[in-house]
Nucleic acid binder design. Structure first.
Lengths: 213, 213
DNA sequence: GAAAAAATACACCAAAAGGTGTAATTTTAA
DNA sequence: TTAAAATTACACCTTTTGGTGTATTTTTTC
């Protein structure tokens, strides 16, 4: 019999962890060596029994997925991380892959896919949820040609402040710029994103996590 | 041996369903008789093998938790529903209890709590996650004194459309009302919520899931 | 069936946002 | 070391939002 794969599970929903544990205990080639409910806890517990594979929910509090991944791959380069997410947030995939994850799974996939993913990343292969693969592919060549990348640094900065309910005047005061300049950036950003008003801009920003860009 | 409790699971994350199934299969007094990934599917599949208890994620697409609960308790008054949620959205608890759920569980609780909840509701008792009980208690007297409950039906309807980036004029056309009326509702809602502009209104609406209210 | 709440609609007016275009300066990258 | 991109700033003008108040009608609730 082949050697068991040592697995660590991190998710802020204990019920989900319990479920996955039970699910994986049905196999004889996976052993669960640890669990955590947030990023900080992962960092703390990881070294106790070093896992081969880490199932990491990227929507956890305290430390988010990207930060945790960076910290972990720095300290434990051999760890294979599978990012778990609820949303089809494909714009994050490349970011997470760059941060060092080997797999990217949506939670609305089935048991079988999970097992496949664990097996694949353990062999140092990359595994993406089928729904995500198409994005990853045209990602190879076009890198990050998402509409967001058209925005300049200043524009993103200003959008963040708009989402925080600041008016142009307030933003201008904060950044020591003319209110007219802020308005120009705001309008330019909206033209690039093809958005028609503040409501859609805020929506867009939240959906696309502009805030942790 | 006591009769097995027949359980139906509804959650939009297949992986979660698979986990819970495996978890519950470890017990000998629960039998899973069905599963679904959205509210509509629950309605369709429910009658095939009538469950005693329904585990219902309230954040599903197609039909949300409250709507699904209403439909189900109307057609199957004997069904015991346990609402599952990720967030500590206590302002929804009373609403869901009124809609007919017998239990309310947060996903960040453990396996044991889940089993306790299933057992309790099957005996027609009410079960709430310990974290929620305090809210339910002062809920008895203060009902739902969340700031949201100050909003009228019309105001909520209009906020939803604002979040969808509609202008007052567009909303007026859609609802066959005067633009001035829409503006009045908008301003009244904002005064009640103590919000100063569209950006904060959209933020608030998204954070508080106004959309499935 | 009276009182209260909600929905409708307006006046009047101020502030903010949004559309289009020009232009000088600064930063970045080829 | 230039060409390109980004940042800053303004003009001119329209539309949309937002604040405060009044008032009539409709719906709910006690």
């Amino acid at each position: 019999m082949k050697k068991k794969i040592k697995l660590f599970i991190a998710d802020d929903h204990q019920m989900f962890i319990d479920g996955i544990k039970s699910l994986l205990n049905e196999t004889d080639w996976i052993e669960i060596v640890g669990e955590a409910n947030n990023g900080r806890e992962v960092i703390e517990k990881m070294h106790i029994r070093m896992p081969d594979v880490l199932l990491l929910d990227i929507g956890m509090p305290e430390l988010n997925g990207i930060e945790t991944t960076f910290l972990l791959t720095e300290n434990y380069p051999s760890i294979k991380i599978i990012a778990l997410t609820m949303y089809d947030d494909h714009h994050r995939v490349s970011k997470m892959l760059k941060a060092g994850v080997k797999g990217y799974l949506l939670k609305n996939t089935s048991k079988n896919e999970l097992l496949e993913a664990i097996e694949a990343v353990n062999k140092d292969e990359t595994y993406l949820s089928p729904q995500l693969e198409k994005f990853a592919l045209n990602n190879e060549k076009t890198e990050d040609q998402s509409i967001i990348s058209k925005l300049t640094k200043r524009e993103i900065e200003i959008i963040k402040l708009i989402v925080q309910s600041s008016t142009n005047k307030e933003i201008a005061d904060k950044l020591f710029l003319s209110e007219l300049t802020i308005n120009t950036h705001r309008k330019n950003a909206m033209r690039k994103l093809e958005l028609k008003n503040t409501a859609s801009l805020v929506q867009f920003a939240i959906e696309n996590n502009i805030n942790d860009l």
